[in-house]
Design a protein around this nucleic acid. Structure first.
Length: 802
DNA sequence: AGCACGCCGACT
DNA sequence: GTCGGCGTGCTC
């Protein structure tokens, strides 16, 4: 028997199955979808079994044996194997990269090189002896750190040592030690009587155990209940009155308990939407819905009730949310409805926690998963519904390989499982709304807020007029007045700082120099915490300069409106106000996000100040004022989606106010109040915005009128980069039909990254079946000719940033 | 991708 | 003479 294995080497020439002989002893164990350890050339690597056959075309002298099977139960099921193949083709990635998406990172391989000693250590140079110590094996890394690499090479030549590639496997199952009390009471009595009468404590403990025969306790609990020390417990266990057992436990990612809730009364609109979804659930049909509901219209309740039906039918549900920002409040809602059946999956969990949640899903112990993008790959086998909340969010698109979009994967899986997909949003992406209008998706609309609250009143303040009247602060008089009245009424305020594409940089006020990364064409970001400058792309760091690097002026200082600066201003205006600041600095620690939100929910602060991360999901009854400090920072980005993103942001933020009994008010400060994105967001008019934006997109030939693909060339030398980019553009123009528009080559928006220059072509196309095959051919050509010349090529279909 | 193999310059 | 530079080619 032979196994077809995709090896854990992400490279073009090995991106295909390799055949290995399955040794007799493993034939009954090995299944398709399991991980195996195999020899590959001179090293050992991990691989995934993607097929098992009786024959092989590979000459027998070349076929090698599988060395080890790592999973008795396959980690990737048939559906996900198929999905990986689809992803490989659609996103143009290596199959191994697609397969890695399907398993938690705890199960991914780690490799280590170990040096083995074969002679008496006295024969070695002293330096090597110290690293080995008394052991005969040590990681190569330790020799590297000691600077002993040349000595190792020498020892290697002499045959004194060998180097072995070890595949390390994480995925530790957490266990806890429990005390299992002997179940035979007679036996306990016998033990009790055998203990000398002087050992009072021991006799006391055994007597207690007689009352709890056959039960299991944590050691600490026994000690606490009986008020007897651990030492005594140990001696009693030694006498055989109880045994230690290891129990597999799950790491618990939930930090607090929840109260059970039941279904809420639905409005007529909600009922209608739910009914439409339920019809497809009953019919077991793959179908995509776009649930367009204004903020506060109760989309989540529809999700919950649809999932309830799915669970009643014994099926599973996948609920995707954009990012951690949403998960605490959202998961809480799901847990309070479905209790222990819910698993969570997001980047805030540790590797171990993610692994445990994944195992619960794999074993069928949970039926609902609430998670971020990657949760779309959970190994459920009977999916009944897939929901993407805030479907317009760009976080659903992965920015590095495999560059997949969770929405596309959701649709694929829904077809596999014959189940509906629900895309929910208050501000759907133009792509989705256009598809709904064309009838590809079914549009479900919620136009009223669930509790009949009126939408908040939105005031747009013209900052130009404000400036003309002499107010140079970042707060307009309207906003200050509104804040003052809320503070007086002890209501809560949310202040939103729109900083998209904008960060704190360091600028010389004499010559205008902005300190840039030496590897990338990007300004360095100022970090107040350790007073340094950091490149967000390559991680390069340097100290804050005292002098301008180009003109030596000392007038060099930190610039940009950070949240800290706003906080200082608030303190000047309202010294008594309690401010909670939420940004990368205050939320970097695990769980801090949740803590801050909890604190705000408990009214421990009057003002919540933050960036994008507070735009979504916040739902507190006492928020009656939302202030947007500068609406237009996201409006003037070189991105065709700038207006759409601004509209979405303003609508989302406004939706935070007045969700409960008290009416809400929103103050939007801007330098361009006449811009349609701002005017229409003020009116909360999605459809008019959609119509307006669509005419713009049609005129400029942008999505959704065209699909786009981005092909990028990078090289260490500018001239070479331009040359190959031009060659690529010519090649594409020659091989793609006339109807496909190829723009460029042009320099990428970040023209240099990690010392590589970047040029790109933008491909615009309508439905074009030849595109993917042509791109595959381009890559094949590049691999054959350019790769060795130091050229790098990347392809991103449907990029979210261009 | 990694690693071995293999063929040419500068060092003990 | 050997060490080590990195071009070339293979991995079941």
């Amino acid at each position: 028997m032979f196994a077809q294995v995709i090896v854990d080497v992400a490279a073009y020439p090995v991106d295909r199955p390799f055949d290995y002989r399955i040794p007799e002893s493993l034939q009954t164990v090995l299944e398709v979808g399991s991980r195996v350890k195999v020899p590959f050339g001179p090293r050992n690597v991990l691989g995934f079994v993607v097929g098992i056959r009786a024959e092989t075309d590979v000459p027998t002298n070349k076929v090698r044996n599988i060395s080890e099977v790592l999973d008795v139960e396959p980690v990737i099921n048939a559906e996900l194997l198929q999905l990986a193949k689809w992803l490989k083709h659609e996103t143009i990635c290596f199959e191994i990269d697609a397969l890695q998406l399907m398993i938690p990172s705890a199960l991914r391989a780690k490799y280590e090189k170990r040096v083995h000693l074969h002679v008496a250590s006295e024969q070695l140079p002293p330096m090597l002896q110290t690293v080995f110590g008394t052991k005969t094996t040590a990681p190569l890394q330790q020799f590297e750190k000691a600077g002993a690499l040349p000595l190792i090479k020498q020892a290697l030549r002499l045959g004194h040592v060998t180097i072995e590639n070890v595949v390390k496997q994480q995925g530790k199952v957490k266990t806890e030690r429990y005390v299992f009390i002997e179940s035979d009471v007679e036996k306990l009595v016998a033990i009790h009587d055998s203990v000398s009468k002087q050992a009072k404590k021991q006799r006391e403990l055994i007597a207690w155990m007689q009352q709890h025969a056959g039960q299991m306790y944590k050691p600490a609990d026994i000690c606490e209940v009986t008020n007897i020390g651990v030492a005594v417990l140990h001696s009693v266990i030694e006498r055989g009155a109880a045994t230690f057992v290891s129990q597999e436990v799950y790491r618990d990612p939930f930090t607090k308990d929840v109260h059970k809730t039941t279904n809420l009364q639905l409005t007529d609109e909600q009922d209608l939407a739910l009914l439409a979804i339920q019809k497809k659930l009953d019919a077991q049909q793959a179908h995509t819905f776009l649930l367009h509901g204004i903020t506060g219209s109760g989309k989540t309740e529809i999700y919950l009730q649809a999932i309830e039906q799915v669970l009643a039918e014994g099926k599973e549900a996948i609920m995707l949310v954009p990012e951690i920002a949403l998960t605490p409040q959202m998961t809480e809602r799901f847990r309070s409805r479905f209790g222990e059946q819910v698993a969570v999956m997001h980047s805030g969990l540790s590797t171990g926690e993610k692994y445990d949640e994944w195992r619960k899903i794999q074993k069928g112990e949970v039926k609902v998963v609430v998670g971020a993008r990657s949760a779309i790959f959970v190994p459920f086998t009977n999916v009944g519904i897939i929901i993407l909340d805030e479907e317009h969010e760009s976080t659903y698109k992965q920015e590095d390989v495999p560059r997949y979009h969770a929405r596309d994967v959701a649709v694929w899986r829904s077809q596999y499982h014959n189940c509906p997909v629900v895309l929910g949003s208050a501000t759907p992406s133009l792509e989705s709304f256009a598809r709904a209008k064309k009838g590809v998706y079914t549009l479900l609309t919620l136009s009223e807020r669930a509790k009949q609250q009126s939408l908040p009143t939105v005031h747009v303040v013209d900052l130009r007029a404000e400036l003309a009247s002499g107010n140079r602060s970042m707060f307009s008089t309207v906003l200050v007045d509104a804040m003052r009245s809320r503070l007086a009424r002890r209501e809560q305020i949310v202040l939103f700082l729109n900083r998209r594409g904008y960060s704190s940089f360091v600028l010389c006020r004499d010559c205008g120099t902005v300190v840039q990364c030496k590897n990338c064409d990007i300004s360095l970001t100022y970090h107040r915490t350790n007073e340094n400058l950091k490149c967000h792309y390559c991680g390069y760091e340097e100290m804050l300069p005292q002098q301008c690097p180009s003109c030596q002026s000392e007038h060099i200082r930190y610039f940009g409106t950070g949240t800290q600066k706003v906080e200082e201003e608030i303190h000047k205006l309202f010294p008594e106000a309690r401010v909670l600041r939420m940004d990368v600095d205050t939320t970097s620690k695990k769980g801090s996000h949740e803590q801050l939100l909890d604190a705000f929910g408990n009214k421990e602060a009057d003002i919540l100040l933050g960036t994008q991360m507070i735009a979504k999901g916040l739902d507190f009854p006492d928020i009656t004022l939302v202030g947007v400090l500068s609406a237009d920072t996201s409006l003037h980005l070189p991105d065709y989606r700038a207006a759409e993103k601004t509209f979405q942001l303003l609508t989302q933020v406004s939706g935070r106010a007045g969700r409960h009994d008290k009416p809400g008010e929103v103050v939007v400060q801007t330098y361009t109040p006449e811009h349609y994105a701002i005017e229409l967001a003020k009116a909360q008019a999605y459809v008019p915005f959609y119509e307006h934006e669509m005419t713009q997109r049609r005129r400029s030939g942008h999505p959704p009128y065209y699909y786009i693909a981005l092909v990028q060339i990078s090289h260490e030398d500018v001239m070479q980069t331009i040359r190959y980019a031009q060659e690529m553009a010519d090649w594409l123009r020659m091989h793609l039909p006339q109807s496909v528009r190829i723009l460029g080559p042009t320099a990428s928006s970040i023209a240099r990254l990690q010392n590589r220059y970047r040029y790109q072509c933008l491909i615009k196309y309508k439905i074009e079946p030849t595109l993917i095959p042509t791109l595959h051919a381009l890559i094949a050509m590049y691999r054959a000719e350019w790769a060795k010349l130091g050229v790098q090529l990347t392809v991103d279909l449907d990029p979210s940033m261009i």
